[in-house]
């Protein structure tokens, strides 16, 4: 596929009806694949050996790490959507950002909660205000703020623009989260998978972790497409109600 034909295909999806038809085709396959990946990932996670220091609590890693990755990836999807809103005014860009926000909030909540449940037996504390934990908590607050903003503004065009600007400004927090463990002295451990010198986790734990990460990512994209479809329908309902009110007047 040439770059021009790829660009034409993406711009063709600007038509919500065409997008909805694509979603209807993709969703059953994505949902099925997500289910299979979770079954395999969970099976391998509980077959993986216990850590020589952490014991069985290492199994929290298989849900904590994918949740934390998803918390950041979801915000990255929102930032790309925000660029789509501000630069190309793509009709689906704001739909994408709006649909991703509650999903991102849920995964960030899971990252914080499972991290806390892992921290108590390993560190001896539920929470510390170190750079990693604090920056992820800030991300959670940003998600909640964006949900509140989307609900508070009536004018969709204005709401889309304001949200997009806030999302892009807030994106500065993502590299802070990623590199906080390198830039500051934190109780949270440094990166052990995405490293320049390769992962430091034994393959018996690395593979289940990677499969769970793919399962969580597929779950995110499945839910995101479903939430985008709901948002398009919500906008249609609003437009049709307005149309009906005008006809009646």
């Amino acid at each position: 596929m040439t770059i021009t034909s790829a660009a034409n295909y993406v711009s063709g999806l600007a038509n919500p009806t065409r997008f909805l038809s694509l979603v209807a085709t993709l969703l059953p396959w994505m949902a099925g694949l997500t289910g299979v990946l979770f079954v395999v990932g969970l099976y391998l996670s509980f077959q993986a050996p216990e850590d020589y220091q952490q014991g069985m609590t290492v199994r929290i890693m298989f849900i904590h790490v994918p949740s934390a990755w998803l918390a950041m990836m979801c915000y990255t999807v929102m930032a790309l959507s925000a660029i789509g809103t501000l630069v190309w005014r793509h009709p689906l860009a704001d739909v994408s950002a709006r649909a991703a926000t509650p999903i991102g909030a849920a995964f960030t909540f899971l990252a914080l909660l499972t991290g806390s449940l892992w921290g108590k037996p390993m560190w001896g504390t539920w929470w510390v205000w170190d750079a990693r934990l604090t920056s992820v908590f800030v991300l959670f607050l940003m998600y909640l703020g964006l949900i509140a903003l989307n609900r508070a503004m009536d004018d969709p065009a204005r709401s889309a623009k304001v949200s997009a600007i806030i999302i892009l400004v807030g994106y500065v927090n993502i590299p802070i989260i990623k590199f906080s463990v390198d830039w500051w002295n934190t109780l949270h451990q440094p990166a052990s998978v995405m490293r320049l010198d390769g992962p430091t986790i034994h393959p018996s734990m690395l593979y289940p972790l990677l499969i769970m990460a793919v399962a969580f990512t597929m779950l995110f994209f499945t839910l995101h497409l479903m939430a985008m479809r709901n948002e398009i329908w919500r906008r249609r309902v609003t437009a049709l109600r307005r149309q009906a009110a005008r006809s009646a007047a």
Partner: peptide
């Protein structure tokens, strides 16, 4: 108990997300 609570809350949160999306749909 720590592992069970972590997996339990994760399952509940994911189920709540799926329920919310299906309810909206």
């Amino acid at each position: 108990a720590f592992v069970s609570i972590a997996y339990g809350v994760t399952a509940l949160t994911i189920l709540a997300l799926i329920t919310w999306v299906l309810f909206e749909q």
